[in-house]
Amino acid sequence: MKKIFILCGILMANFSLIAQDATAVKKVTYPAGYTEQIDVVYTKVNDWEGKLDLYLPPAQNGPSPVVINIHGGGWNKGNKESQTGFSGFFKRGYAVANIAYRLTGVATAPAAVEDTRCALIYLINNAKKLNIDPNKIVIMGGSAGGHLALMGGLLENNPIFDTNCKGTKNIKVAAIIDKYGITDVWDWGYGTLKTSKSATSWLGDKAKDKDFAKSVSPLYQVKKTSPPVFIVHGDADPIVPYEQSVALKAKLDELGVKNEFITVKGGQHGKFEAEDNRMVNAKIMDFLKGLGL
């Protein structure tokens, strides 16, 4: 009996460690002179609060460009606290807005898109107070976050998903950084290359509505006026098919939208070799520099 108690104690201790790891918070390191504002509420929907973390450069430097960062996780998991690695932006004087959004367990599509738009609108409306330049907003994400970054930016002034944040005009981002994001939700859910439960779960009661799936798919939001897009995708991605980014690239080229597409040879889903990561980060910064950002 004593051995059983000891074994149970060990198992409980191990479970506790695992649970702590699953909810671990990564601290963002930023340069001297920067300030942080954590868990700023950018929108409320019933009893849910949309929060973002802000990292702001010294005010005396003048209005700064800002990057909105969106975590991935198939729209059903993940959190903003898992996100770090903004040093390249900090070195160039960017502010960073790291956002949370409603996951599938809280609300299905288009909730995450609505929240992304609200975060963007919040920053535009509060640009003067936060000392950021509303003409230099970059929106970025990986996987489901890449999808949301694309939707947030490609919708431009289309208010279809701005129900919770009405009234703002001239909504336009300066650039979109899409890291292996979903570009066609219907194809991800039912396509020949992948049948993702994350896609059908996120679509919820509209899981069989192809027109709705298109309305929340970046591939169908591209216009001649769309902002420049940087795309990176590993050609061995087992989660989001590489072909999704190929299709987006083709659509951008067809409509004459400035873009750059980086293929990581042998790259998995966000799992790139250290050398490839350095290359991608350098290419992102070069892309933004070329846009005057």
Rank of each mutant, 00 (worst) to 15 (best):
N157R: 02
T84W: 04
V264M: 10
I4G: 11
K51D: 07
A22Q: 12
N79S: 14
N125C: 08
K179I: 08
I68N: 02
S201W: 12
G191S: 02
G181C: 08
A149Y: 02
F15T: 00
P241R: 06
D209F: 11
T29Q: 14
V40Y: 11
Q221C: 10
W186L: 00
G167L: 08
F272Y: 15
Y55V: 08
G181K: 02
T35F: 01
A19S: 12
M140Q: 14
L155V: 01
I99F: 06
L255D: 02
A207D: 00
E36S: 15
A199S: 12
Q244E: 15
T225P: 00
P63H: 12
K197H: 08
A213G: 04
Y101H: 14
D115K: 11
D53F: 09
N76C: 11
A22W: 13
M285A: 14
V264Q: 10
G105F: 05
K197M: 08
D205W: 06
G256W: 01
I70N: 05
T195M: 13
K80H: 02
K27M: 11
G73M: 07
L11V: 15
L54M: 11
G78Q: 04
G266A: 11
L248P: 04
F161W: 09
N126I: 08
D211A: 15
E243Y: 07
H71N: 03
N125H: 04
L148E: 00
N135P: 00
G267T: 07
G146C: 04
N131E: 11
M1D: 10
Y190F: 13
N170C: 02
I99G: 03
N61D: 14
E81N: 13
L123T: 06
K2G: 01
A119N: 07
K27V: 12
Y30M: 08
G266D: 07
I160G: 02
P134G: 02
P134T: 01
G167N: 08
G73P: 05
S82T: 12
S87K: 14
L255M: 01
E49H: 13
A95I: 01
